[in-house]
């Protein structure tokens, strides 16, 4: 099966129903997407499929074939961070960090559809990415800052 991840093409020999998260982490050694719950309840595994956030634990690898898969590793680079990543650093959002790749991927997808979100929209969009450290107030501020950056870009 051929996968396109972060603009690179990979051949993987996996079962069609293997969750994409397994293919990314175990086969391609792309470890940014995290395993949290495995049942689309926590959001730690969030990646983009054609630019839209999905839970990689619950989509099969076959379903991702032929699509543009983007993980946190492909959103930005250390030298050219995505606006959401910049805002995350500036607002020191991260505490333990485990959920944050998923948070950032969800935020980036959300802002691509809602460039000027309300606080209510941000809270609704980001509540499905669980953070046991409770970083949600900083997440909200960082999403607003990222929205401003993207508007000015």
């Amino acid at each position: 099966m051929r996968l396109t991840v972060n603009r690179a093409t990979y051949e993987v020999d996996v079962e069609d129903d293997m969750p994409l998260l397994w293919a990314l982490r175990d086969e391609l050694k792309i470890k940014g997407p995290k395993y949290g719950c495995g049942i689309a309840q926590c959001g730690a595994c969030t990646v983009h499929l054609d630019g839209i956030a999905v839970r990689a634990c619950s989509i099969t690898t076959k379903q991702a074939e032929g699509r543009e898969i983007t993980t946190i590793e492909g959103l930005g680079t250390p030298d050219a961070l995505h606006a959401v990543q910049e805002a995350w650093v500036e607002h020191q959002v991260v505490q333990c960090g485990y959920c944050q790749p998923g948070q950032i991927m969800s935020a980036a997808s959300f802002l691509s559809m809602h460039p000027e979100p309300t606080d209510e929209q941000i809270d609704q969009a980001m509540s499905a990415n669980l953070c046991r450290c409770g970083t949600y107030p900083r997440i909200r501020e960082a999403v607003k800052a990222a929205a401003a950056k993207l508007q000015g870009a």
Partner: peptide, 8 residues
Amino acid sequence: ESIPCSTC
């Protein structure tokens, strides 16, 4: 408007 059902 916030998070598509299809995300999960």
